[in-house]
Nucleic acid binder design. Structure first.
Length: 320
DNA sequence: AATTGATCCAACCGCCTGTAT
DNA sequence: GATACAGGCGGTTGGATCAAT
């Protein structure tokens, strides 16, 4: 399939032979078979030798982002979201570096997640996604909510006790749904207690020291944070973050909530834009719940109630 | 049922870095 | 050291899909 764009883009005669756009099943099969025989690498050579009318880059991208067997499909779990938030706060847009710590996730996927979900929230709040304020907001509200969600997921697992089949994650692509059914959920987590402790630790500190809890490392302190022992060391990992995330294919912690519906929602009924407006005096006149529905999407479901917003506002005032 | 707008994500592009010659 | 090439990375685009009207 040679797209009409080729001519418009001014590709050379040789390039005109190249295919662009979505990959076909035949192309995928060809690439998979070639790599099975010859291995990865030498992508330009691969592109020529395999008979694929694609650039080496295109072949590499297709393999790494889609065809490679260990690529994980489906929604990001709360654990993965939490890790992305934490690592991004440390490394910024180093997507490939972040992806190295999320087994089966590609830099492209993480990048898309950040742009479509996280930056969307920043836009709604009219805060620069790279600003300290937004980072604080993430750390103070979003991350604890994800921790809470993880705890709820593990609790749900306990009660469910694997008697019912796992539900399908929302927004699964058609390709993903074509994959074999997932294995049954693992037994209840040994780490859930740790997570609970982390949340309790956070709540305790918030209550005893409400003006300062935003910057407290206790949220992710190593002794209160989940410490499932399978996770390998992450060399230059932030001291305040999630230690010991797993790089193995089978990670009971990650998988535990992978099959939990992503449709649980936090109580956002009492959330309104007047509450939002306390955050740094942002203009909210053109930012309505009805417009954005952001309180109900799967990202916003995990964040922010009025109390926390007031706390956040106090903190901001104090810092000014 | 049709239309429109929003969202998601696969794929592409250009730039940068590392390596071989 | 200069050049060419391959591979990797982050930013962006555009088509497909979903949701709202």
């Amino acid at each position: 399939m040679s797209t009409p764009k080729n001519a418009a883009y001014g590709y050379g005669e040789e390039d005109a032979e190249l295919r662009r756009g979505p990959w076909t099943v035949e192309e995928d099969t060809l690439l998979i078979h070639y790599i099975a025989c010859h291995g990865e690498g030498r992508w330009n050579l691969l592109a020529k030798s395999s008979g694929l009318k694609r650039t080496g880059k295109s072949c590499r991208l297709r393999w790494l982002n889609y065809l490679k067997p260990d690529v994980k499909r489906g929604n990001l779990t709360p654990e993965e979201q939490l890790l992305i938030l934490e690592l991004h706060s440390k490394w910024g847009n180093r997507w490939s570096k972040i992806a190295q710590h999320l087994p089966g996730r590609t830099d492209n996927e993480i990048k898309n997640y950040w742009r479509t979900r996280v930056q969307k929230q920043a836009r709604h709040l009219k805060i620069d996604a790279n600003s300290m304020m937004f980072r604080d907001a993430i750390r103070c509200f979003w991350m604890p909510r994800l921790l809470q969600k993880m705890e709820e997921s593990s609790s749900a697992m306990k009660t469910q006790n694997s008697s019912t089949p796992p539900s399908t994650p929302l927004n699964q692509t058609s390709q993903a749904s074509a994959l074999p059914p997932p294995p049954p959920p693992p037994p209840p987590l040994e780490g859930s207690l740790r997570i609970s402790k982390a949340i309790n630790s956070f709540d305790h500190e918030k209550n005893s020291n409400p003006g300062n809890y935003c910057t407290s490392p206790s949220i992710f302190s190593s002794d209160s944070m989940m410490s499932i022992s399978k996770f390998p060391e992450i060399s230059d990992y932030p001291a305040t973050s999630l230690h010991n995330f797993d790089n193995s294919d089978y990670n009971p912690f990650l998988r535990s909530s992978f099959y939990v519906d992503n449709c649980g929602s936090y109580d956002m009924d009492d959330f309104n834009m007047s509450a939002m407006s306390v955050m740094g005096g942002y203009e909210t006149s053109d930012c309505h719940m009805a417009e954005s529905n952001w309180a109900y999407d799967d990202m916003a479901e995990s964040i922010w109630n009025i109390d926390e917003l007031w706390q956040f506002r106090k903190l901001q005032d104090r810092n000014i």
